[in-house]
Computed example of a mutant assay.
Amino acid sequence: MIRVCFQLQVAPDRIDEYRRRHAAVWPEMLREIEASGRRNYSLFLREDGLLIGYYETESVERSDAYLASSEVAARWEAEMSEFFVGDGRPDRTAVPLDEVFHLEDQLSEIAPLQEGNGA
């Protein structure tokens, strides 16, 4: 499973409305996200509008291609674009973040070492 984290900037004067819109995402958009192969999808929003998104998928390319061809996703992203600083569809302008630490990965690396030492 590939873990994906990204950042966007919500316009400070649009934060309250952005929160309202995401409290009840269109059911058809929820189904499209799920059909794209994204799992464990979350958005986190700071008071100044910094938005961090996270999801897991088997293939970023397949997930992106599925949503890029989705009429529902195109309508949703067009409506959401007014909330963000910058130009373009937010799903295509998000800044990906590099993962520098994952607990389970590191634990799995040390477990065989501990077992070999009789621990």
Rank of each mutant, 00 (worst) to 15 (best):
M1S: 15
I2A: 05
R3T: 12
R3L: 13
V4M: 13
C5F: 14
F6L: 11
L8K: 02
Q9L: 09
V10M: 13
A11F: 00
I15Y: 01
I15T: 07
D16R: 15
E17F: 05
E17C: 08
Y18S: 10
R20H: 12
R20P: 01
R21F: 12
R21I: 10
A24Q: 12
A24L: 09
W26Y: 08
P27K: 11
E28H: 04
M29N: 07
M29A: 08
L30F: 00
L30D: 02
L30T: 03
R31A: 15
E32F: 02
E32Q: 08
E32G: 01
I33K: 01
I33S: 00
E34V: 09
S36R: 00
G37N: 02
R38W: 02
R39M: 13
Y41W: 10
F44G: 07
L45C: 08
L45E: 03
L45T: 04
R46M: 15
R46I: 05
E47K: 13
G49I: 08
G49F: 04
G49A: 10
L51T: 11
I52R: 03
G53M: 11
Y54A: 13
E56F: 03
E56I: 04
T57I: 07
T57P: 06
E58Q: 14
S59V: 01
V60S: 05
R62W: 09
A68L: 09
A68K: 09
S69N: 14
S69I: 01
S69T: 07
V72P: 00
A74H: 06
A74K: 07
W76K: 00
W76D: 01
E77C: 13
A78W: 07
A78T: 14
E79P: 00
M80V: 12
M80Q: 09
S81R: 04
E82A: 15
F83W: 03
V85H: 06
D87K: 11
R89S: 14
R92K: 15
R92I: 06
T93K: 08
T93E: 14
A94R: 10
V95K: 15
L97R: 09
V100S: 09
V100K: 10
F101N: 02
H102A: 12
L103R: 09
E104Y: 03
D105K: 02
D105R: 03
Q106N: 04
Q106Y: 06
Q106W: 11
L107G: 00
L107M: 04
S108M: 08
S108F: 00
S108K: 05
S108W: 00
E109S: 06
E109W: 02
E109A: 08
I110G: 00
I110V: 13
L113M: 11
L113K: 06
E115T: 06
